[in-house]
Design a protein around this nucleic acid. Structure first.
Lengths: 145, 145
DNA sequence: CTGAATGCAAACAATTTGCATTCAT
DNA sequence: ATGAATGCAAATTGTTTGCATTCAG
């Protein structure tokens, strides 16, 4: 039993219905791997199955994130991005110049997490955060602004 | 010469025109102190001077942030917030339960900044970032979800 | 069968834009 | 007087919602 059907089985067990739409959405998410917007998921499915509705994609992705199957990342600009939940929390470095997104390790956020808890008694939700700035390539280019 | 007119003088020097709208918007920002949305700025001004337009408020705040007079913080949910640029970078802890926003010191982000630069050659823009989670008060309350 | 899920269209929130008019310089 | 800034209305983008219909269980 692969990931795909295991997830579907779990959803069914949690009282959700396994519809063709949900299967297709999960398939796209699985195949894609990286972060993807609701609109992109919709486009990919809609191209092949024109009857599938945008609202369904939004509703399904929202449901999948509630169920912990996918994670949500607000990239600050433009639409929210979804990604299969792999277990390992990881984060995104978003280059504001070229738009490139690379990942970085959760370990780097641990000192921050610790100090926020200690000094402010604040419990941060640091799964999948996005940090904005300039990537290595763009630092070489002329500073335009 | 206070901050207010100093800023206006600077804008004028940079080729911007000092309009009553811009003066009012700056006044609201100054008086308010904390973070505030474009809509809130608009409401405050519009209540007294109904002819002032929402688009003008948006355009002006955008201009002021380009000029470094105000800073922008994306609080993840709802509208972007603006704040007078005080020089000292500081950050926001946004409680996802009660909505409370408290500030935290830039120093706590320095280890992260350093490690991102060292390990990923990524230059983060860490002025005024927002971190989401649960504040001390809400941690005491029953965990609802 | 029965209610959960879908499709559709319309509403929504936050913001942006085109364009004629106004007004700061 | 001249172009930057405004007001207005309409467009845009990303997302949500109400409701009748459909279909998974």
């Amino acid at each position: 039993m692969n990931d795909q059907s295991e997830i579907l089985e779990n959803l069914r067990r949690n009282g959700y219905r396994v519809t063709p739409q949900r299967v297709m959405i999960l398939a796209v998410m699985n195949k894609h791997g990286g972060h993807i917007s609701a609109e992109e998921v919709y486009q990919q499915i809609h191209a092949v199955h024109p009857y599938v509705n945008r609202a369904t994609v939004y509703r399904t992705l929202e449901m999948l994130s509630r169920e912990g199957v996918v994670t949500v990342t607000d990239l600050g600009k433009g639409p929210v991005h979804y990604e299969m939940h792999t277990g390992e929390p990881h984060h995104h470095l978003v280059c504001q110049q070229c738009g490139q997104i690379e990942e970085f390790d959760h370990a780097l956020l641990e000192p921050l997490q610790k100090s926020l808890e200690r000094k402010y008694k604040f419990q941060p939700r640091l799964e999948h955060m996005a940090i904005f700035g300039r990537c290595s390539k763009c630092q070489v280019k002329k500073t335009k602004a």
